[in-house]
Design a protein around this nucleic acid. Sequence first.
DNA 1: AGCAAGTATGCAAGCGCGTGCAAAGTGACC
DNA 2: GGTCACTTTGCACGCGCTTGCATACTTGCT
Lengths: 358, 358
Amino acid sequence: MVIAIGITHSANHRKPNMANAPRDATRILRARDVADLLGVSTSMISRAFNPQASISPAMRKRIMEAAEALGYRPNVIASSLSTRRSKIVAVILGTLENPFYAQVLERLSRELQGAGYQSLLFNLAPGQDVDSQLPYLLQYNVDAVIIVSASISSGIANDWTNSGRKVILFNRTLPNMPVPSVCCDNQQGARLAVDHFVATGRERLAFAAGRRDTSTNAERELGFLARLAEVGTKLAAKVDNPHCSFRDGYNAALKLAPAQPDAIFFANDVMALGGVEAIEKELKLRVPEDIAVIGFDDIPMAAWPTYSLTTIHPPLDEMVASAVKLLSVPEGSTEDTRIIHPVTLVVRDSTQPREITG
Amino acid sequence: MVIAIGITHSANHRKPNMANAPRDATRILRARDVADLLGVSTSMISRAFNPQASISPAMRKRIMEAAEALGYRPNVIASSLSTRRSKIVAVILGTLENPFYAQVLERLSRELQGAGYQSLLFNLAPGQDVDSQLPYLLQYNVDAVIIVSASISSGIANDWTNSGRKVILFNRTLPNMPVPSVCCDNQQGARLAVDHFVATGRERLAFAAGRRDTSTNAERELGFLARLAEVGTKLAAKVDNPHCSFRDGYNAALKLAPAQPDAIFFANDVMALGGVEAIEKELKLRVPEDIAVIGFDDIPMAAWPTYSLTTIHPPLDEMVASAVKLLSVPEGSTEDTRIIHPVTLVVRDSTQPREITG
DNA sequence: AGCAAGTATGCAAGCGCGTGCAAAGTGACC
DNA sequence: GGTCACTTTGCACGCGCTTGCATACTTGCT
């Protein structure tokens, strides 16, 4: 009898789909495996891993220890089916060519991991817009989307937030909509640039703008021009650029040259480096003696001795932390979720007082 | 009677969990929604999206059109529960500081998207090893893991492949194990460097090595030394580096200086750039007149005029394509899955014949 | 000891989709 | 018209986990 019971018990305890699961060498463990071992129901396994579930501390300890010993971890994918939270955040970005974005991605993904999320990476092909990609994201049950330096239409943003998911813009804002966003103070950065140029004796200030259609660039331009007006200096020249690339910066410097600027503010560091290149190699002028240069982003290369670029430093770690923090702001919160971080000016060799040449 | 049937039909057609799904503004569509609209079963919806399922072309067309019109797409997460394929590939990498890795990640993720996969990004913290992270990946039902420039123990690799998932190494190999991997011909690259140095009249060749424990570096070193021996030249000096960073390259150049090399091969471009920096700014020597420099990776910055670095070019697009192709190699295939791509030498200004100074 | 209030557990029904199997439909051919 | 072979469809159950509800167990108090 006892034997019979024993046999019955172990024999039909579970009806595994034999056709599908032949491998048990490194089979992936299910809650059932732990439950069977401990003689409890799978519900308890689930509850043990859910901090707010009703379960006795003793039981939780027992389960956690068994899970640890066996190497069991709840399957996030399966659990996301019922909870509708996947602990996966989609990170959308255009390109990693600009080291600034690479930095953002790396820190963002690291910070997300720290908060228990994983990042699902979406690279936009050139010319591809975020809106068209969002529907694909839905397939992945992502909890949130963090859009790095790319734009999104307010309609779509609305749809998404309505559907209970979060959309967070990084390094962009949506002017007319309260979409959560994290930026650095672009205007203020541009103002710092003007002030520093003026303080170091520059008089013919030029601006190499980035892409017209981005809020980031618009703010930098706005700040630059506004501050110029405030201090009573005229803009010597300005040039727009399609891609914000090294080559764009190079070309921008060449196009600005006829206006004979003695200082150029580039909308980002990569362009500034290209600009320096053009100034020194092609125009045969010296930085900073003939032309002072300020960039924006403080990418690692800006600190390299060859360039030693004066630039505006956004507090990347804090910005990333803010973005991740926004993930846990409750849905109906009235709190303002458009966060702006202050920037600082990092003075290096690409700007120097004019005393020597003056 | 007819009315009753009608009512009954539409009333209990489904019992939605009212508590959980109140929002229907932008509600995410399920197969059921499409099925109900067309008056078919959800099975058919599933089959319509599965190329090898048994379904009439007419029905498939009808379903696809309805799905398109409604904006329905199958939920990858839910489907992965039954199919055990998530169309998600984990990409593991250490850091994006080195632009080469950023390039790899960008192209890899793009190529994966093209093949219908998405990349789940895992950043390793410094000192963190892949082995310890793999268990976490299992939670995400990833189809495969692509490990970029990081090492993995053969035991773990074994466990994984046994469990039916793929592990693919990018830019690393596992010497004793047939783990699928994609590399460029590191040895050959190093040999090209030696030959080019010799052909341009260099006699005191030095090597700034990367991290000792990586196959990539070992192969580059091996190739360099072997070719040196073959052409009957002695190694002027060699120095190891912990991180392969810009600063490492900078320091390496300083450490190599006492040996008075007239050519230095750096294990990668970032180090080479650091080396050039040190040679020009700190040692006050000229590149290439006093010291010729060759790097490895052909990162975008190597082509910038300031550096104009001669380097070994790995065919990144082809490598990435190979890696993605490896994903679909059937499990028991006998085909060799350790792919090595040829490299080419890109000659720029950091190496020039010695005629002028000679 | 007995009972109420509270806590711990198990049960079963989902989450959205895939799929083996049986039922229904289609068409060809005699 | 009937039969057979074949295709198309629906049913129902399972993937691994969560969770409302009912039951079983504690505990404290009279």
